[in-house]
Write a protein that binds this DNA or RNA. Structure first.
Lengths: 248, 248
DNA sequence: ACAAAAGTGTTTTTTATACACCCATGC
DNA sequence: GCATGGGTGTATAAAAAACACTTTTGT
């Protein structure tokens, strides 16, 4: 990346007045419906200007005394009930003009969005539907036009999800406490596509990492041999933390 | 990660007043002095409260009409002259209480820091020393106590540098246009430590990726056989972009 | 018995690692 | 010649990929 001359020129012009910001948090909330083999994103239909009637990412403005993470959790808790989830900060979008509420007459108030990325368990997530705004899961492949720059934020989150899955154990935050290896495989297939790995290779690599322990319990899913239930052993995972680890 | 009950409790208490933010940009600016085998960070000594006389990351508050990236470039350009550099957003720190200038009587004005991570070429970087504040390179292994939460930000940036180097061609943004393979190797050694890879293996892996082209020119560095000068071929790299690529 | 799903093992290919060795230059 | 750094090749070990095969259930 190079410093361009425009940047330098802008630096020299003395527009020293500081911008005032409202800071919002926008969440890209994913869930995985392995039964139908699809990744879903939680969207909210706006019922106020700007972008009235557009779909958008669930978000909120940060309140006095509230941390960014708390604001992200609050938004999430207002829209859905979940048990476990994975949540992390994504990226901050704050360029002038990204929110139409900014206008020259409003003393330069700007809207900065700190985006968060969440992965929740689809089966355990219950949408809280109150008042007259709509909340709904959308397939990540069929997203309607979104308000503001939320398309860009969503895309950023979608890339993060696919990458994170490969070197971080976020899948186990979103699986039930006890799960079959096939359930793990289905989750990976749904997010990364079916061609990422053969089941038997995936299986042996995952077990060799040594942080999944066999509970001894068996479970039947219709026909076929009963599957072993495994659980995530966070103690066994601890030493692997911060290591450049690949799960697939 | 689990939703804890404190979060829920906080949600229900209705403290609906929005926070007002000043948004700052803090830069973790790295350079690599391969001659002395050390990674350096640019620090600035504060000459105002809070944290007067502490060292800190070079930063600035965002002005009206200014994008976050522009603010990052402006800070950089005020402190050092560089030719090429790599710059990307790191993380946003905005929890209440991170800046002592926040106080209950100031109507909840908060200070949010959007941090950026930069890598510049040490040999080409000239420090601009004006007025009475000090700017200096510090070895990343010998950082003094920093103002605010800048230790945490620096640590975050240092991890990003080490990771990014392994799957992204940021090294070539900071090398001269034509370079020897040994110069690339030295850069990697300095940042990742000498034990990351054998030189001959590093060399063949890098060349096999196919985006370095031999200029045919030779250069002598004291004794020994003259080395070939290579250059980064961005056209050949283009198809590799967005691929999960490892350079070491 | 047979289909379906779980689980194991084996072969082949590719990639990583650790070196040994040759090449071109300065002194 | 010989030390020095540049550059190539090779043997070995490890890991990834492809796929054949066995085990245990439901029907």
């Amino acid at each position: 990346m190079k410093i361009n001359s425009q940047t330098i020129a802008k630096n020299n012009s003395q527009l020293k007045k500081l911008a005032d910001f409202k800071v919002g948090v926008d969440n890209v909330i994913f869930s995985v419906d392995t039964a139908y083999n699809r990744v879903l994103v939680l969207l909210r239909k706006r019922n106020e200007d700007p972008f009235n009637h557009y779909w958008s990412l669930p978000g909120t403005l940060v309140r006095q005394g509230e941390s960014l993470t708390d604001a992200a959790y609050r938004t999430l808790a207002e829209k859905i009930q979940v048990d476990n989830l994975y949540l992390e900060q994504l990226y901050s979008f704050g360029d002038p003009g990204r929110d139409p509420r900014e206008n020259p007459s409003s003393f330069g108030v700007r809207y900065l969005s700190v985006s968060y990325f969440a992965l929740v368990r689809y089966q355990a997530a219950k949408i809280i539907n109150k008042k007259n705004y709509d909340i709904s899961w959308y397939k990540v492949t069929e997203i309607p036009p979104l308000a503001f720059d939320h398309d860009e934020i969503l895309n950023y989150g979608w890339n993060r999800l696919k990458n994170k899955l490969q070197y971080s154990p976020i899948a186990f935050d979103v699986l039930p406490p006890e799960f079959t290896l096939n359930e793990v495989y289905q989750l990976y297939c749904t997010i990364l596509g079916e061609h990422f790995s053969d089941y038997s290779n995936f299986r042996s690599r995952l077990l060799k990492l040594g942080f999944l322990s066999d509970t001894g319990k068996k479970v039947c899913r219709g026909a076929g041999r009963p599957a072993s239930l495994y659980k995530f052993d966070s103690e066994a995972f601890a030493p692997l933390k911060d290591k450049p680890l690949l799960f697939i």
